[in-house]
């Protein structure tokens, strides 16, 4: 069977190769998981050797790293950050809280399933995941990029109505600027 990887043109292959080896991460430090990011980036686990490096602003970033539970108030900021990022953009959701709510599943003001609000590329489970798991998650994302099917930015735009409806369900005072991407 022909996979998507085989049907890539050479230009696409080179582009994906460079995307894979140069991931600028916007670490959105929500929740407790943020504490694992310094460990992942610094001497002991050294994510920079894989081309992963921190980005200062959403405009420069490729990967949005959501590290834990999201209060509805934070979700609003996350959506703004996500919409400001430039395609192709990827989301890595970190910790059980982003998958099903984790230990905050019955909290009155956190969201349970991140997938409903922004498209997620890779989930890293654990409460909280260790740096090895984080790097394994990045590896999975890299494989996905190399295969050429990490294009959730487009998916988000195509299904914007669905995502917007979900977002507005939890964010009551919806006052957000429109982005022209």
């Amino acid at each position: 069977m022909e996979t998507k990887k085989d049907s890539q043109t050479i230009a696409e292959y080179i582009k994906n190769w460079s995307r894979k080896h140069s991931l600028f991460v916007m670490a959105y430090g929500t929740g407790c998981g943020a504490i694992e990011i310094p460990a992942t980036m610094t001497s002991r686990y050294d994510a920079e050797r894989l081309g992963i490096r921190g980005a200062a602003t959403p405009r420069q970033a490729d990967v949005l790293l959501i590290t834990g539970y999201l209060a509805t108030k934070t979700l609003k900021r996350v959506i703004r950050v996500y919409e400001q990022m430039q395609d192709p953009k990827y989301v890595i959701a970190f910790g059980s809280c982003t998958i099903n709510g984790g230990m905050y599943y019955d909290s009155y003001n956190t969201i349970n399933v991140l997938e409903k609000y922004i498209p997620v590329d890779v989930y890293i489970n654990g409460c909280m995941p260790r740096p090895e798991a984080v790097i394994a998650g990045f590896k999975q994302l890299q494989d996905k990029i190399a295969r050429g099917d990490a294009d959730n930015g487009t998916r988000y735009k195509e299904n914007l109505d669905w995502y917007r409806a979900n977002q507005q369900q939890v964010i009551k005072n919806w006052r957000m600027p429109d982005y022209n991407w």
Binding site: I14, S18, R19, S22, G51, Q86, G153, N180
Partner: peptide, 13 residues
């Protein structure tokens, strides 16, 4: 590599 990646971004604001 970073430069190649930046140049192959699909959108630019």
């Amino acid at each position: 590599i970073d430069l190649l990646k930046l140049q192959s971004k699909k959108t630019n604001i």
